[in-house]
Design a protein around this nucleic acid. Structure first.
Lengths: 348, 348
DNA sequence: ACTGGGTACTAGAGCGCGCTAGTAGAGCGC
DNA sequence: GCGCTCTACTAGCGCGCTCTAGTACCCAGT
């Protein structure tokens, strides 16, 4: 790596302003008390419209911004919500995008903490707690034991988990219903040999697997049912495809554990000369951003991201603002989105 | 959506502990002064090994954790670094994953703030500043004007930008070198008709576009040079492919703006029956996670993610710990990773 | 015995804010 | 004149921590 000096900034030469202005500075310059400034910034009654404007104007002039840390320390209320995410999971990104506006509407700020290889769920959550979040929304998976512990310290809501024993609010899709819709669609098209590549122990996988088996049974296709172990990554799709291809006879349709898995599957099939949907149909799960892309055009089970975000935020906020109620479970309706990767099987 | 009561947690019934323990609680229980506890937790000298252990033990017993907000308020040093990210950009996720361990090693904590449709760069940065970050690492793009403003308030480093006038540290790849390597590779294979789908005004695009033109000229292929306008999304790749296909005669090789663009391109080409790399070669840029997947196996320009993360963190930290030096620009070496999407052209 | 210099610890003043309790003054009825 | 209420503002404590300037004590050395 090479290092070279960059151009000097013009004008003031990049001098860091010596000290961040505080309320006292604003108060002094506006000729009022510190308390009055506090009042104004909290939007509390008790200041004349005139003074209010004056304070805001002075604040603007000297570049004052209230210090979250201090505010946070002084008030019991911090109005901060913590959110844990798994960076690699696009689904989490989409939920977070929807969380921001809802939180803002309710007057809460969002603090993010990522789960990464060197940054465990525990550390991510602890970081949030240390910053005095009033509540947490857990997108990243957590073991039930720790979830219980967290739930005792602070209002928490876990997304896409079924840890009903942890005593925290739960938000998730009706997985079984989604799977059922997907299978009904495929079976209506005439498919019988429908394989499921599952998501291992990932979020919602158990429910989806179970629902797959139940639906196949219901349609008297129990003997055609087959679950190939996988996970929620593209690799799982590729491995699933390779396994099926090596066995010579392909199923006419595959229900993937999620969209990422479906993508891997799609690509591996196409590489092998299998045309989708002509030779085989593929259904994903999540309806994540990529599924909607024209070149992928994946038939998939849509998760109500907007609803999940809404419910998650509202649940924590409600619990923060009036604690004591029993833990609740919010179940959102999934819906099948039929796109270009499903069609009737050949022989029909 | 349907709501149902979840199971009540066992034992203590999910009672929120009334008050979070403080230093004073630890001090009282351990029979020492508050200051001593502070000492111990800051790992400062001046406490006997015996007392130190005792304090830690008591803290553990009553579940004490130092309060970041208070600590942050009291000390001039907060040891917190802010990072802005664009949620949709996997490349950012990969950098953040590498940032955590480096920051930890240097004793800093990381606070994340996302740029989303309803959460602008400005708001993301402001949120970080309000939480008293000592420095910020900006992965999400910012206009030079605001970058300058931020740089005056706090040590900042911008990743993949060339805003040399903003007076902040800059970290980026030697884009030109990466492009040159890619083109050298293609030309050595025998390609002449090499098209570039560019990244519009996205990070690094101008440099890549310029380098592409320069390299074509150097190899006396200026008359074959062609830039198709695009951006950093899969869509750009698809549109580029459609455009080229509609014109009847395909180039023998395409340099995409980044991996996402290459992916769109790849898929659109394959759909149209164009075999890669037999009928056309494709090169991406970033070497992001997906490129390495076996079913994509994309030849691409590797960006030194580890190096970028390392330099970015070290740069802010150095500037925090000894301010006053001139803004620097760190340039990291890219390297071409040859995988399965490039081969000699047909006619050779 | 008196200093000197450690080590182990403590007192107490902030950090920037929120918030309760209070005051000063204006307006009003009697 | 008096009390009363209402608006517009202020004093000052405390949130949980850091950090400077101490104090108390012990063990040399003279």
């Amino acid at each position: 790596m090479q290092e070279k000096p960059a151009q000097r900034p013009g004008g003031d030469g990049g001098q860091r302003s010596e000290r961040r202005p505080t309320m006292a500075d604003v108060a002094a310059r506006a000729g009022v008390s510190r308390a009055l400034v506090s009042l104004v910034f909290r939007n509390a009654p008790g200041a004349s419209e005139q003074t209010r404007e004056r304070v805001f104007q002075v604040a603007e002039e000297i570049g004052y911004r209230p210090d979250s840390a201090a505010r946070l320390l002084a008030s019991s209320r911090t109005k901060v919500l913590g959110v844990t995410i798994t960076l690699r999971h696009p689904f989490h990104a989409e939920i977070v995008e929807r969380i921001y506006p809802v939180a803002e509407e309710l007057g809460y700020e969002i603090l993010l903490s990522a789960v990464a290889p060197t940054h465990s769920e525990h550390r991510a959550i602890d970081a949030l707690l240390d910053h005095r979040c009033e509540g947490v929304i857990l997108l990243a998976e957590v073991d039930e034991h720790y979830l219980t512990t967290v739930g005792k310290k602070v209002p928490a809501v876990a997304v896409s988990t079924r840890a009903t024993g942890a005593g925290v609010d739960l938000v998730h899709s009706a997985e079984a219903k989604g799977v059922r819709q997907a299978l009904d669609h495929l079976i209506t098209l005439g498919h019988k040999k429908i394989v499921h590549i599952d998501g291992g122990d990932g979020a919602g996988s158990t429910e989806r697997r179970r629902a797959y088996r139940a639906a196949m049974r219901k349609h008297n296709l129990a003997e055609c049912a087959r679950v190939i172990p996988g996970d929620h990554t593209e690799q799982a799709g590729v491995r699933g495809a390779e396994l099926m291809l090596s066995e010579g006879e392909l199923p006419t349709a595959v229900l993937a554990s999620n969209d990422r898995c479906a993508l891997g599957l799609l690509d591996a099939l196409r590489r092998a000369g299998v045309r989708v949907p002509d030779d085989a149909s593929v259904v994903g799960y999540d309806d994540s951003h990529v599924a909607t892309l024209s070149y992928i055009d994946l038939t998939t089970v849509h998760q109500d991201v907007e609803g999940i975000a809404q419910r998650a935020v509202r649940a924590v906020v409600e619990r923060i603002e009036e604690p004591g109620s029993d833990p609740r479970e919010f179940v959102l309706e999934p819906s099948l989105v039929v796109r270009g990767t499903t069609a009737p099987p050949r022989s029909v």
